[in-house]
Protein backbone atom coordinates (compact mmCIF):
# COMPACT_ATOMS: atom_id res chain seq x y z
CA UNK A 1 0.00 0.00 0.00
CA UNK A 2 2.79 2.39 0.92
CA UNK A 3 4.49 1.56 -2.34
CA UNK A 4 1.35 2.43 -4.34
CA UNK A 5 0.98 5.74 -2.50
CA UNK A 6 4.62 6.59 -3.10
CA UNK A 7 4.32 5.86 -6.83
CA UNK A 8 1.15 7.98 -7.09
CA UNK A 9 2.78 10.90 -5.26
CA UNK A 10 5.80 10.66 -7.57
CA UNK A 11 3.58 10.66 -10.66
CA UNK A 12 1.72 13.74 -9.40
CA UNK A 13 5.00 15.55 -8.68
CA UNK A 14 6.38 14.74 -12.12
CA UNK A 15 3.14 15.95 -13.76
CA UNK A 16 3.16 19.20 -11.82
CA UNK A 17 6.80 19.76 -12.66
CA UNK A 18 6.22 19.18 -16.38
CA UNK A 19 3.20 21.48 -16.44
CA UNK A 20 5.25 24.23 -14.78
CA UNK A 21 8.00 23.92 -17.37
CA UNK A 22 5.53 24.17 -20.25
CA UNK A 23 3.86 27.27 -18.88
CA UNK A 24 7.06 29.12 -18.31
CA UNK A 25 8.94 28.19 -21.44
CA UNK A 26 8.68 29.13 -25.02
CA UNK A 27 6.00 27.44 -27.07
CA UNK A 28 6.58 26.44 -30.66
CA UNK A 29 9.34 28.99 -30.86
CA UNK A 30 7.02 31.92 -30.27
CA UNK A 31 7.90 34.62 -27.81
CA UNK A 32 5.61 35.69 -25.04
CA UNK A 33 3.11 38.39 -26.02
CA UNK A 34 4.78 41.76 -26.28
CA UNK A 35 2.23 43.35 -23.95
CA UNK A 36 3.42 41.03 -21.17
CA UNK A 37 6.98 42.12 -21.50
CA UNK A 38 8.06 39.42 -23.99
CA UNK A 39 9.80 39.99 -27.29
CA UNK A 40 8.23 39.55 -30.74
CA UNK A 41 10.40 38.34 -33.58
CA UNK A 42 9.43 39.75 -36.99
CA UNK A 43 10.96 39.46 -40.43
CA UNK A 44 12.65 42.75 -41.27
CA UNK A 45 10.80 44.65 -44.06
CA UNK A 46 12.84 45.77 -47.02
CA UNK A 47 14.02 49.33 -46.65
CA UNK A 48 11.67 51.80 -48.30
CA UNK A 49 13.07 53.34 -51.44
CA UNK A 50 15.79 50.74 -51.82
CA UNK A 51 17.09 50.86 -55.39
CA UNK A 52 18.56 47.55 -56.40
CA UNK A 53 19.64 48.28 -59.98
CA UNK A 54 18.88 44.77 -61.21
CA UNK A 55 15.40 44.83 -59.67
CA UNK A 56 14.73 48.32 -61.05
CA UNK A 57 15.86 47.22 -64.52
CA UNK A 58 13.60 44.15 -64.35
CA UNK A 59 10.61 46.25 -63.25
CA UNK A 60 11.36 48.79 -65.99
CA UNK A 61 11.34 45.95 -68.52
CA UNK A 62 7.82 45.07 -67.37
CA UNK A 63 6.73 48.72 -67.50
CA UNK A 64 8.18 49.18 -70.99
CA UNK A 65 6.48 46.04 -72.25
CA UNK A 66 3.16 47.38 -70.95
CA UNK A 67 3.89 50.78 -72.47
CA UNK A 68 4.51 49.21 -75.87
CA UNK A 69 1.03 47.70 -75.64
CA UNK A 70 -0.41 51.09 -74.68
CA UNK A 71 1.27 52.72 -77.67
CA UNK A 72 -0.17 50.07 -79.99
CA UNK A 73 -3.61 50.69 -78.52
CA UNK A 74 -3.11 54.44 -78.87
CA UNK A 75 -2.15 54.12 -82.54
CA UNK A 76 -5.20 51.95 -83.15
CA UNK A 77 -7.51 54.57 -81.67
CA UNK A 78 -5.87 57.36 -83.65
CA UNK A 79 -6.29 55.36 -86.85
CA UNK A 80 -9.96 54.75 -86.10
CA UNK A 81 -10.42 58.44 -85.36
CA UNK A 82 -9.23 59.17 -88.87
CA UNK A 83 -11.35 56.55 -90.60
CA UNK A 84 -14.64 57.83 -91.89
CA UNK A 85 -16.94 56.53 -94.62
CA UNK A 86 -17.35 60.11 -95.73
CA UNK A 87 -15.55 63.20 -94.56
CA UNK A 88 -18.36 65.36 -95.90
CA UNK A 89 -20.76 64.69 -93.06
Amino acid sequence: MKRVLAMTALAVLVGVALTGCRAGGARDGAGAPADRGGTTVTTPAPAQGAADPAAVAAQTDTDLSELDKLLTELDGQLKKAEESPTDAD
Binding site: L78, K80, S84, D87
Partner: peptide
Amino acid sequence: YILVQKQVHL
Protein backbone atom coordinates in the same frame (compact mmCIF):
# COMPACT_ATOMS: atom_id res chain seq x y z
CA TYR B 1 -18.91 60.60 -88.93
CA ILE B 2 -17.17 63.92 -88.49
CA LEU B 3 -17.90 64.33 -84.78
CA VAL B 4 -19.14 61.32 -82.78
CA GLN B 5 -16.66 58.88 -84.35
CA LYS B 6 -13.85 61.30 -83.49
CA GLN B 7 -15.18 61.95 -79.98
CA VAL B 8 -15.13 58.24 -79.21
CA HIS B 9 -11.71 57.33 -80.56
CA LEU B 10 -9.84 60.50 -79.64
